[in-house]
Write a protein that binds this DNA or RNA. Sequence first.
RNA 1: GACCCGUUCGUCUAGCGGUUAGGACUCCGCCCUUUCACGGCGGCAACACGGGUUCGAGUCCCGUACGGGUCGCCA
Length: 455
Amino acid sequence: MSVRTRFAPSPTGFLHIGGARTALYNWLFARRHGGQFILRVEDTDAERSTDDSMNVILDGLKWLGLDWDEGPALGGNSSRGNRGPYRQSKRVDIYDRYLAKLEEAGLVYEDEGAVRFKVPDKDITVDDQVCGAVSVNLKEQGSTRFDAGTKQEVPTNPDIVIKRPNGGYIFHFVNVVDDIEMGITHVIRGEDHLSNTPKHLALFEAFGIEPPTFAHIPLNLNQNGSKMSKRDQGALIHEYQEKGFLPDAVNNYMALLGWSGKDDQEIFSFKELQQRFDLNGINKSNSKFDYDKCLWVNAEHLKKLSPEALSEASAPFLQNGDIPVNDARIPPALELARERSQILSDVPGVIATIFSDTVEYDDDAVAKVAGREGMTEVIQTLIKGLDTVFDWNTDAIKTAIEMAAESIGAKIGALMMPCRVAVMGAMGGADLVPVLELLGKEEVLARLRGFAKKL
RNA sequence: GACCCGUUCGUCUAGCGGUUAGGACUCCGCCCUUUCACGGCGGCAACACGGGUUCGAGUCCCGUACGGGUCGCCA
């Protein structure tokens, strides 16, 4: 039987890193086994579901490259796959049919307008691929509830509500029905669902259907050790896009948070992930999100990007920085920027000076250089030396600076920093000589002359 | 509170009865270098605790502590 996994988000907000990781694991598992990945929108709670938030989730998945074989199309008006519809709000007739089965079997009853499913009074064992065998008796378990307000146990009905008085169906029921109808073979989901799983198994049994394989993955927590919330740094997928993370890097980092290839490799291409991901490598314990490491993973991916891919990915960020995207100097400039950038939004800052007609001088840098003795002579020597360069290329520029240094009995180092500050305005930044080359002779000389006047 | 899951450097993790407990991020040195960064080298830093089992326990068992989760007519 072919593997079929699904991601079943509830469209109530944004695509959260926890959800995205769940989607990724399901996607990787399906791809690894040549199966199908299904996207199903759990929007049974009409009051909390909107098309907009569904599209945010679809956009996020698309950006990550987690394409689905079956599920709603962007926009939500059409879908692909023959087991749809893939929005629960449009599957009511199917749920009605399944409810009728339970009614026939005498397993449900009405309770104040709602419909309850009678849970069996016995141990139900989840044979989880990550957590092992977990047994629970729903009848005993559900007989009391802890009221957080009064901190009291209050008696409750263990039989689970599967349909609201207003006719709407409840998660546990639709989740199971859809997994049956959609032929889901493996359910990979957050560990927060582990305690719900016996309920689902009871429903599978009631329908006489062999349940899928379950794998409950540990949760991602924030730095404080509590569940990631929307306000935590790195929680929302669209922010990665905005900040200039690469989708593959985000996938890589998400994979690492809860899964290990069992060796020392940490940087995985998307393709490698597809080849290597397995349920065995999933960890048992929760992990804390580490933004610094995520940045590092992205920087590693940035280094490996082809020049073409780098250009393409950088374009929106260059535009933001008012840098001309189609300038012929962009490709070499990007090469200067890539080693100094962790995310693409770092890129414009590294190379902006090349494309600007003014120099933004850092006061401290200027003061430091200007304070040196004989600086006027140094700058004049640089101007003279560089003015003689015919073929304006890195070798010739470097040679000219070396000769200029020699002419005043100085080491090249004594000229480089003044030149850097004069031309780029700061002590740090991209390699100076290539920057000089890209800037062009006239501009470099103009900047040096301008700087000379400041002395 | 009851039940469920978990616990190796600050963080992500390797380890599956015998290891100087390995790697990575962060941080700190040094080297490279025209700066910054990259890279290279090195350093700081961990088996939650207590009992067992065993010749021997990070590895197996039982407790305790701590963390997380679930206990909805949310998903």
